[in-house]
Design a protein around this nucleic acid. Structure first.
Lengths: 327, 327
DNA sequence: GCTTGCTCTGAAAAGCGTTCCACACCGTAT
DNA sequence: ATACGGTGTGGAACGCTTTTCAGAGCAAGC
């Protein structure tokens, strides 16, 4: 059946609901005979707890939320993979919420934390203001997978300034001076850090960046292809590109091949994450440990679920340069 | 704040909890003045319902589960994308459960359906017996994204026989006779259909397949690379390969390039899904509409959540041959 | 004048498990 | 002999909302 409830079990076993509850939760102090009998009846009736009643009663759900801009992207998939592995170890379930970078959708998910549909939240997307984040952090722990300026929300993140710095230093050391970059959303926090590193590094070798070398709003593979086409048309094209995502880099590399742009001699490419397509196409990349980031994100969240009082903490992960065939 | 409950609101507004509940749920028959006052108090106290109490009371959670073997795989990501889009339209949340194809983990997720943690379940992985599936289908609707032989569980799936048939017919029409194949899990239902189509098609042109042409357990990109190396060593290599996943095909194509195997003249490659890497590397593929499959899966599940009595239904999606540069 | 049918409201039950508190019993230590 | 600590058990409150049912008030129709 499975329609029975704990009271029914208690009645059949001739004990109180308290005792059945103890059996269910493996509490000590239950007579072994009764325990066995209760377990027999539970098995016979095919009974399981109603988890909503458990949630209501305990105030916990064993569910954590994960927001991300889009589900079908290997960078975010790697993070989820890391979160999922740790979550499974601790018997937590994952609620995955695609936000499309729409603030209102993110807000809706924050509300799920407030109304106790989840015990904590890991935000891989973030279009929400710090104030709102701090406000909702009162209702349950939040971890962002980006740096944030809040008072209470911990984060684990890639150092994007350092990522671009490493990429730039590497390209500069290879003799490049006309270096361009490709980034995604023009006004995101991450992009700001990247751009700052880009300008700082160019300045360090007294190069004045050309506005033509900046490619923004590169989100999908096709955008990378467009960049390659664009570069072919340029009078004074960059000799190297630092590209924020490997799938964009892949688009550039692939289209360059078709256009007869030789890589790396005409154009060197450095990607900036650890998407598998980078390995497949042998793209040099400043690799970010995104699965590890997911592991840490869950660990930190879990810690805060257990000890809600702990203080804000920021964990920064260093990227690693992986030299392959595009430089 | 935020700690108030419906009773508190009722007390402050000088009405009963019923009336507050009606306001919360937009029921008619509430005096406009009271409604306004109640809404004012709700806003002032920053109150939201405790969703666990709502779930307990209504018996619904507005959550559906999705099982998949692994999260970090573009084929499954596309399906989830399709599910997520439809789910969002109907205000459902997604619980994503990675099973690693371990039956016991799948069983654990089925239990979540039984104990009412979710209203329905879409299974993209399936290592579970039909009996078990039928048993759990009593507790809530289940849709599989593979064909299944159960009495009660609906499915939406790619016709894998047809997929391989189309691929084989195409390769045969191109003059190939020494055709090999790569598949993933040797003993899965899908693989069985694929192999059957493979043998049927070869037989139709009186070719006896060599056991050497069968590559099984191809799961990750490296497996594809290994296939390419293996083929280079062969005395009598196949002239074409039908590959069940594009990421495997990508590994083959890429490694073949390094090894000096010319594609398609030495070796033609046909992939069998719609992973973006196929487009990127211009791999000819028998494309399966996986995002669409996700859309349908949610639609069918939703229909059954609303009308639990409806009968088993199977929806088969036809793949489409996309000719690119590897044939 | 009486019936019928809305509109509006509240009490109470139902949904179900956890946990605190009180109590009882038994053995051991003082 | 008495006190104390551990073991075992049940009652009842608690977590919170939805929903059914009963009833009140009021207007329109016959």
């Amino acid at each position: 059946m499975g329609v029975a409830n704990i009271r029914e079990i208690a009645r059949l076993a001739g004990v109180s609901v308290s005792t059945v509850s103890r059996v269910l939760n493996n509490h000590p102090y239950v007579n072994e005979q009764k325990r066995a009998e209760i377990m027999r009846i539970i098995a016979e009736l095919n009974y399981v707890q109603n988890s909503n009643a458990v949630h209501l009663s305990t105030g916990k759900t064993k569910v954590i939320g994960v927001t991300l801009p889009l589900v079908n992207n290997q960078y975010y998939s790697s993070i989820i993979e890391g979160i999922a592995a740790e979550a499974a170890r601790h018997q937590y379930n994952l609620m995955v919420c695609q936000t499309n970078n729409v603030p209102e959708q993110e807000h809706n998910i924050l509300r799920l934390l407030k109304n106790k549909k989840m015990d904590g939240l890991i935000m891989c997307s973030r279009s929400t203001s710090c104030e709102l984040l701090d406000e909702y952090a009162e209702y349950g722990p939040i971890i962002t997978c980006e740096a944030n300026q809040t008072a209470s929300v911990s984060s684990v993140h890639i150092d994007h300034y350092l990522t671009f710095q490493i990429g730039m230093e590497y390209l500069i050391s290879k003799g490049h001076r006309k270096i361009g970059y490709c980034i995604g959303r023009k006004n995101s926090f991450n992009s700001a850090h990247r751009k700052r590193a880009y300008h700082d590094m160019l300045r360090s070798v007294d190069v004045k960046p050309s506005a033509d070398w900046a490619f923004e709003d590169c989100l999908i593979v096709q955008d990378g292809k467009d960049v390659a086409r664009h570069i072919q048309q340029m009078k004074e094209p960059p000799s190297a590109l630092l590209v924020s995502c490997n799938h964009i880099a892949a688009g550039i590399v692939k289209e360059a091949g078709s256009l007869g742009i030789s890589i790396p001699s005409d154009l060197a490419i450095v990607g900036c994450d650890d998407q598998p397509v980078g390995e497949l196409l042998e793209i040099t990349t400043v690799s970010s440990p995104s699965t590890l980031m997911g592991n840490y994100a869950f660990e930190m969240l879990y810690e805060r679920i257990l000890h809600p009082s702990s203080k804000k903490e920021s964990r920064e992960l260093a990227p690693i340069l992986v030299e392959r065939r595009t430089t």
